[in-house]
Design a binder for these strands. Structure first.
Length: 833
RNA sequence: GCGGAAGUGGCGGAAUUGGCAGACGCGCAAGACUUAGGAUCUUGUGGCCGAAAGGCCGUGGGGGUUCAACUCCCUCCUUCCGCACCA
């Protein structure tokens, strides 16, 4: 008898699949498609079980959908530009390309070793000119439309990376790659993509994603875009002709309650404000102190509010009141207008500030319910809505109405207007780095900024470059790259030496998969139209805002360019949980990595795959337990031996004969096992279609195998056609999750041609249906007995049978029966008086 | 502070529509086979009482609805995640 040998079985089938092109997906308008994708990996060199969990989920789905007859696109590629390659190059003196490509070779070998059903013909690597030329092409299209633009601005600078970071890459005031390195502020010229032009579209189209995307991802994106409705109001500065301070507020209805105007420490008006005031020298030192201590992120919320009075006054345009102008650390220059009105009674921050500096508290909104507010009795701000009071002509209006009327009033008198602000900022894509896509523009002394013409793309990244990891882009030191001629006037010109943020690469890569070898366009309209949108995208929650907001933005730009017709690239998104070891995410720096290849060598990839599905539902984090995987190894072993043991007898039975199962003459055992098989099929199908609880799918298969094993001797007591039918169902159902061993067993059972394209088994209700039910009998809700009854028993009969049960009769003997609840097929509950 | 998710044996987890809590697996214990076992098979395995039959308790705590609650409602606690002076 043959033993289960995963190594040889897995190698065998991987080779066969390769030869057959079993997972090649080609555009076929006659067939319904399914596009399933896992987020493309960065080629760091190692793949651990965290990656494998992600890919196993996707691969099981891909294989299942293929068995359902869909034309399945399941591609893979490499997000191969980026900083680690440069760092590795500096450290080990290997060119980034070499380092990257050898990592890709290693990692793709691991993916192949796991038997993922990718269409390898569509593999992409973003650092190849065939790919990044289209980054440049998109950039040029955006430049033409004013979506890409250059400006000098304050940027987030990571002193470790020595480059600019996008806002999305700043976490708690620190670099996303260097969690302890504080981001500095630096002013330089750089390229931006106008993602803010799509703020509303990004927000509104989230309605289409509801249901298909996790709620929390949508919430995170919504918070990130941070839309808020309010008003801009101008406060004239007293004794400064023509100067005014513009504030932003969402609660203009509280404006009669303001007792100061507060500016951010780096508000542009400030230097002027001090001019000509007595004692302004002392003020400037105070100002510098505040400016130097601008803090961000988590510290911000807990930091003590501090500020000083500038000596200036501004006029509340509604009330005519003179209000002191202050500067305070809690007002942010980059949000709204960088200035606020201070309304202590109705804003908690203002309340705290006013307490510290003894500013007056004026109640101008009274809550509808409860005791009226009294300014001198308040110990916190009242921020709710209510009715306006002490607000001139607006007194008596409900807050919502007051907001509306006051904005209209301000507009009529020309000192304010409605204003919508966003937290979202334009996406700075310039990186002072080597290993990225060159930005395709040229600086000419005569013509200024000149785009590189399409026919000169790609602007190739030179290969031999001295990397220093310091400051400016390494490309600036490569004369043959920098020095060029102006495409417009042919005079000498300089190339842009910054490269693009690698998030540009990953913003559209999934379109490239649809037409990966196209050399005249990023992809054809036909290919994108057929394959898109992505039916199922699977990846980690860490990309909830960065990648997933940028790629939505790219999709909308591509739509406006006429390349595609849809608004959203991803129909359904799934965030799988992490694989943990010793309670934390696997990473090289923690030294807790469980290598995928080690697991494949030790147990076989089918076992490793199965365990990642079995150990926890896919959305939850999973603690890797080296002992736990043994259970899956045993299960596959047991399954293999069970089928193998009977295969010789079943092999010769014709497929059609076993498919057309006739149970009219079947024995109880045959019926029971068939029933179990069809029930398993029903529930696993449900797990694939709706629930995605693959842990229960695996457990169901384990139960089916346990039951079959317990029913031995199967050869003596089973009709071989029925047994073969059951075994084939078992193998088919198992195959999306553990494909190699399933293929092998499929073959052992006498089937030729491979399982990869065989249909999912047909569910037959009449075979899954129970003939008898175990009815539980409760007394006062407590389990007291069980009876086995036929399905067709009515409620009255059930009640009688339960009451007649000797044990039950004994227990209720002499006690009055109050009520009997009968639930057909489930239970009888006898309530005693 | 705001928002979200979660809390079930020694462990991972199951319970699909309010209906047997702990499926399946790990671990552990006993046994079989064996020269051997980190292979395989069998049996047992929430806690307490009991020789057993059986009984009582039990899904973070407290309360409620219901014939019946892991599941629904109220309340509190804990953990994790996200946002965080956004005016």
């Amino acid at each position: 008898m043959a033993e289960y040998d995963p190594q040889s079985i897995e190698a065998k089938w991987q080779q066969i699949w390769e030869q057959q092109g079993a997972f090649h997906a080609d555009l076929d308008p006659a067939r319904p498609k399914y596009y399933v994708l896992e987020m493309l990996p960065y080629p760091s060199g190692t793949l651990h079980m965290g990656h494998m969990r992600n890919y196993t989920i996707g691969d099981s789905i891909a294989r299942y959908k293929r068995m359902r007859g869909l034309n399945v696109l399941h591609p893979i590629g490499w997000d191969s530009f980026g900083l680690p390659a440069e760092n590795a190059a500096i450290k080990n003196n290997i060119p980034p390309r070499e380092w990257t490509n050898s990592n890709i070779a290693q990692m793709s070998a691991v993916c192949r070793r796991f038997g993922f059903s990718y269409d390898w013909r569509r593999e992409i690597s973003t650092c190849e000119p065939e790919y990044y030329r289209w980054n440049q092409w998109f950039f040029l299209r955006m430049l033409e439309r004013g979506i890409a633009y250059r400006k000098r601005s304050k940027v987030n600078w990571c002193p470790q990376c020595q480059t600019v970071l996008a806002n999305e890459q700043v976490v708690d005031g620190c670099c996303w790659r260097h969690e302890t390195t504080r981001v500095e502020s630096k002013e330089i010229e750089q390229w931006f993509l106008k993602i803010t032009a799509y703020s509303d579209a990004l927000l509104d189209d989230m309605k289409q994603l509801a249901g298909g995307w996790p709620e929390r991802v949508l919430t995170m994106q919504q918070n990130w875009i941070g839309k808020s409705h309010g008003a801009k109001i101008q406060f004239k500065i007293a004794r400064m002709e023509g100067e005014s301070i513009e504030i932003f507020t969402t609660r203009v209805d509280t404006i009669y309650g303001s007792s100061a105007v507060i500016l951010a420490p780096d508000h542009p008006l400030l230097p002027n404000l001090f001019q000509g005031l007595p004692g302004h020298a002392g003020m400037e030192s105070e100002w510098n102190r505040l400016r130097q201590r601008i803090i961000r992120g988590a510290d911000l919320a807990t930091a003590e509010k501090e500020g000083f009075f500038t000596g200036r006054f501004a006029v509340n345009p509604f009330s005519g009141e003179m209000l002191p102008v202050w500067v305070a650390n809690f007002v942010l220059a980059e949000y709204g207008t960088g200035a606020v009105m201070c309304v202590p009674a109705h804003d908690q921050r203002d309340f705290e500030f006013a307490e510290k500096y003894h500013l007056p508290v004026k109640v101008v909104v009274q809550p509808v319910h409860g005791a009226p507010l009294q300014a001198d009795r308040m110990n916190q701000a009242y921020t709710g809505y209510g009715a306006s009071v002490n607000s001139g002509p607006y007194s008596g209006l409900p807050s919502e109405k007051a907001v509306e009327k006051m904005i209209a009033g301000a507009q009529a008198k020309g000192f304010g207007e409605a204003q919508t602000t966003y937290r979202l900022k334009d996406w700075g894509i310039s990186r002072q780095r080597y290993w990225g896509t060159p930005i395709p523009v040229v600086y000419c002394e005569k013509c200024g900024i000149v785009p590189v013409p399409d026919d000169q793309l790609p602007v190739r990244l030179p290969d031999s470059v001295q990397l220093t990891g310091q400051g400016k882009s390494p490309l600036a030191n490569v004369p043959e790259f920098v020095n060029t001629t102006c495409p417009r006037c042919q005079s000498p010109a300089r190339r842009e030496t910054d490269t693009m943020d690698t998030f540009v690469d990953s913003s559209w890569y999934f379109y490239r998969y649809t037409d990966a070898n196209n050399s005249t366009a990023p992809f054809s309209r036909e290919a994108a139209a057929y394959w898109f949108p992505i039916d199922q995208y699977i990846g980690g929650i860490e990309h909830a805002i960065l990648h997933l907001i940028y790629s939505r933005f790219f999709c909308k730009v591509m739509r406006d360019l006429g390349l595609i017709a849809h608004n959203e690239p991803v129909l359904r998104l799934f965030s799988q949980g992490m694989v943990l070891k010793e309670g934390r995410a696997m990473s090289k720096s923690h030294g807790n990595v469980v290598g995928a290849i080690d697991m494949a060598q030790k147990y076989g990839c089918d076992t490793a795959r199965l365990y990642t599905l079995f150990a926890a539902p896919p959305a939850k984090d999973l603690e890797w337990d080296e002992q736990g995987i043994e259970g899956c190894a045993r299960f596959l072993n047991k399954t293999f031996r069970l089928v193998e043991r009977h295969a010789a007898r079943l092999r010769t039975i014709h497929a059609a004969e076993s498919a057309a199962v006739d149970i009219s003459g079947a024995t109880q055992k045959e019926k029971a096992l068939l029933r179990r098989a069809h029930q398993t099929l029903r529930r696993v199908t449900n797990d694939f279609e709706v629930r995605w609880h693959f842990n229960t799918s695996v457990s169901l298969l384990m139960q089916l195998v346990n039951e079959l094993a317990a029913a031995e001797p199967l050869d003596a007591e089973m009709n071989p056609a029925i047994l073969k039918n059951i075994f084939q169902m078992l193998v088919q159902i198992l195959s999306p999750m553990a494909p190699h061993v399933s293929e092998e067993l499929w073959e052992i059972l006498g089937n030729a041609g491979g399982l990869a394209r065989v249909q999912w088994p047909a569910y037959r209700e009449e075979l899954a249906k129970e003939e008898q039910f175990e009815i539980i009998i409760q007394i006062n809700g407590r389990l007291r007995g069980k009876i086995l009854v036929d399905d067709n028993l009515g409620e009255d009969e059930l009640r009688e049978r339960a009451l007649a049960d000797p044990r039950i009769a004994h227990l209720i003997d002499g006690k009055g029966i109050g009520k009997v609840v009968v639930v057909p097929r489930k239970l009888v509950n006898i309530v005693l008086r």
